[in-house]
Design a protein around this nucleic acid. Structure first.
Lengths: 120, 120
DNA sequence: CGGAATCCCATGCGATACTG
DNA sequence: CAGTATCGCATGGGATTCCG
């Protein structure tokens, strides 16, 4: 594929999706949007179906991209919490766009529907 | 996870991502945004690295969700083209949001960087 | 031309168990 | 509490071949 404006724009889009892709990232970000900071086990309980392995992995990737910040407190045992960074908060426009479109979309056909016969 | 505003909003977001997820969908949509209609083999050539199997599959899903329209012409052999629907065009706000954020994002650290020592 | 069928592999993700 | 280690499978996606 030739290098065009089209593909450059697309790479920007792909970059964004790469950061918020994966099964849990948007869910975690959404939680942290409404409540920051949250501790590891708080997020785990809030989601309910995520395994610690996945939570750990996703948090690590979000932190690597500076969307969230991880703080460790020298308590005994240690406690850790996670919060959105300002950079992470800048995603709100993206999440609003995705959410708004999704809300409208829900009113439309979206699942494979078998239409055997349609009258008139 | 309890049913809250938070999760309802999240489902809207997930719905949207479900439609434009997959490796090629956004690329196909971006192409069709800049040029509609396009024939099957035109899209194939434009992307360059997609296999007909995947192109067929992605187009089918996009059509199922009414984001694009497929038209068949009874030529010999048959020709087919694809174009954005008005509904598909309504995704532009989403794609702009994703693209804009990605453009800003590129200026920041995004790949795993090993910092051995940092002065001062 | 516009696909469908088949085979195959990488990885994403879940389940379970364990640890400082 | 906040993870890590290991295993295993399902799914996504590529390569190749064939078809009307």
């Amino acid at each position: 594929m030739k290098e065009t404006y089209c593909t450059a724009h697309l790479r920007s889009i792909s970059d964004t999706l790469e950061l918020i892709g994966g099964k849990w990232k948007l869910l975690i970000l959404t939680l942290l949007f409404s409540e920051s900071p949250m501790r590891f086990s708080e997020i785990e309980r809030a989601i309910g179906t995520i395994t610690p392995r996945m939570l750990s992995k996703e948090l690590k990737e979000l932190e690597m991209n500076e969307l969230i910040e991880r703080r460790v407190y020298p308590t005994m045992p240690v406690s850790v919490d996670y919060r959105l960074t300002d950079y992470g908060r800048s995603l709100d426009s993206v999440m609003v766009a995705l959410g708004d479109w999704g809300k409208k979309h829900r009113k439309r056909i979206m699942h494979p529907v078998v239409v055997e016969s349609l009258p008139a």
